[in-house]
């Protein structure tokens, strides 16, 4: 699972995030939404790791925990990009946290909301360099121009002082990518970076992210609901359901022979762009409901087509190796 036997870039161990149901700070809540519940995985250097699931499965929360936009309830996130020793990101504060932010960045879903409407392209891209006090003013200008060139906004100088409303969706997402990459991070969380873009510009943005990853040796956590996009971008994927990883493994293996009944259902529900193919009907019903104080048993029990009494009476199944590195959390496969 690791490249050339070295330590992984990121090792997530038992990561959990619970949100109290009562949102008031002075009242202790007895009920919690288990948004992320004991998630563990590793991301290697330069690897693109996919986190797949439906809305509300906790994939975005996981991403935000990894870049510390939220504080985890428990669990460890060990980050090690080789420059300094491994650090546990989950408890960082103050200066060390600010230093970690040079290494880990995030790209957001909505290109229309991810740029401050009152700031120019230059202001937006230069911000990380500025708050991290990196380089002189001229150095920064130079790096911003180079970055604009890299993300394909050329001639770069004509883009510097445009406002977001003067850019198209695809261009804005390129600016957002440039902002994330300008401090040369080693880890980037990409939260549905193409789902709100026009179909004909998606492939371009995907290709751009791949090129940059290769050039700057960036490890991605690629969060998406789109299995096809994940297949195209990620070498390994994890499928999440109600805060738990239910299946994890090499992308092709997971998609060709899914083990967990949820992964199977998810895959069979993806429309096929070929009118001659008729998909078999999906075997599970209904949508996802938030996991408010969930019972200890398998999270998928209520919707599972193959669940039995054993599933009902036992705890949520652990991730087990089902075939050569492909792990699934299910008693029945």
């Amino acid at each position: 699972m690791q490249t050339d036997g070295s330590r992984p870039l990121l090792r997530v161990d038992g990561l959990s995030k619970r949100f109290p149901v009562s949102p008031v700070w002075y009242r202790r809540s007895n009920s919690f939404v288990h948004a992320v519940d004991g998630v563990s995985f590793e991301v290697a250097r330069g690897e693109s790791f996919g986190l797949v699931g439906e809305s509300g499965c906790g994939k975005t929360t996981t991403g935000k925990l990894l870049v510390r936009l939220m504080d985890p309830t428990c669990g460890r996130i060990v980050f090690d990009d080789g420059d300094e020793g491994p650090v546990d990101v989950s408890t960082l504060k103050g200066k060390p946290l600010k230093r970690f932010r040079r290494k880990a960045q995030m790209i957001f879903q909505d290109p229309y909301e991810s740029m401050n409407p009152r700031r120019t392209v230059f202001d937006t891209i230069v911000e990380p360099l500025k708050v991290q006090r990196m380089g002189s003013h001229l150095d920064r200008l130079d790096r911003v121009l180079r970055m604009l060139g890299l993300v394909g906004l050329t001639p770069a100088r004509t883009f510097l002082f445009r406002y977001p409303h003067e850019l198209s969706g695809g261009q804005r997402q390129r600016v957002a990518i440039a902002r994330a990459m300008v401090i040369e991070p080693s880890f980037v969380v990409a939260d549905e970076p193409i789902s709100m873009l026009d179909v004909s510009v998606r492939a371009g943005v995907m290709r751009l992210m791949e090129d940059l990853a290769a050039r700057l040796e960036i490890g991605y956590l690629y969060i998406t609901h789109d299995l096809a996009a994940a297949r195209h971008t990620c070498s390994r994927i994890a499928v999440m359901y109600l805060g738990k990883i239910v299946e994890i493994g090499e992308t092709e293996t997971v998609l060709q022979s899914p083990k967990h009944p949820y992964t199977q259902a998810l895959l069979s529900a993806v429309p096929v762009p070929d009118p001659t193919v008729t998909r078999p009907p999906v075997r599970i019903r209904g949508g996802v409901s938030p996991s408010l104080d969930p019972p200890a048993r398998c999270r998928f029990y209520d919707r599972c087509p193959i669940a039995d009494d054993f599933c009902r009476d036992n705890e949520h199944p652990p991730l087990q190796d089902k075939s050569s590195g492909q792990m699934a959390s299910c008693y029945r496969v």
Binding site: V199, V201, A203, H232
Partner: peptide, 18 residues
């Protein structure tokens, strides 16, 4: 331009422009 979950993994066509 659409990746697919089934069948061969093909290179995506990148359309220039907007």
């Amino acid at each position: 331009a659409f990746p697919s979950v089934t069948g061969e993994k093909h290179e995506l066509t990148v359309l220039p422009g907007e």
